[in-house]
């Protein structure tokens, strides 16, 4: 999982990303006034640049630098394709929890953003397909 470009045209050159990033993922093009994702292999997917991006030019991707996929497949018997195509959306979790009844112990004050509000497959992890990343 790493940051990736949603639309370079949307970058307004605010430099929040390059200032904020703790992993030195960014460089900057002074002539074009655009940020550059220079070292995505060092992205820790903390999401701070994405959240503070004033132009909305970034997105977080599960498809690039996807460290979680292999151990997930190995330890839980989940096909990586399942992860890539469907994303581990909330419905998956709900089903898993439902099997054991542990979901019933959810604290009451956690209900406003009820897991059940989420539909299968969405909100998608790609922007423009039902909202920004979030699973």
């Amino acid at each position: 999982m790493a940051i990736e470009r949603y639309d370079l045209n949307a970058c307004i050159g605010c430099r929040n990303c390059i200032n904020i990033c703790p992993m030195d993922v960014y460089r900057f093009d002074e002539t074009q006034n655009k940020s550059i994702i220079a070292y995505p292999e060092n992205c820790q997917a903390c999401g701070m640049c994405y959240y503070m991006c004033l132009g909305g030019s970034l997105q977080l991707s599960l498809h690039s630098h996807m460290f979680p996929i292999v151990p997930m497949s190995a330890t839980h018997g989940i096909d990586a394709n399942h992860f890539l195509n469907a994303a581990p959306n909330l419905t998956n979790i709900e089903e898993r929890l439902g099997k054991t009844g542990e979901y019933a112990s959810e604290p009451k004050d956690a209900t406003p953003g009820d897991l059940k509000n989420s539909e299968p497959g969405g909100p998608g992890m790609q922007r423009g397909a039902g909202g920004p990343i979030g699973v």
Binding site: D7, N9, C11, I12, D29, N33, I37, G55, G56
Partner: peptide
């Protein structure tokens, strides 16, 4: 390129640029 400080950018679908500069 938008001026610094501009906080909203409308993006038309199909016109996204996803490549990086050098």
């Amino acid at each position: 390129a938008a001026a610094p400080g501009q906080s909203s950018v409308s993006v038309k679908s199909g016109e996204r640029l996803t490549r990086e500069l050098p």
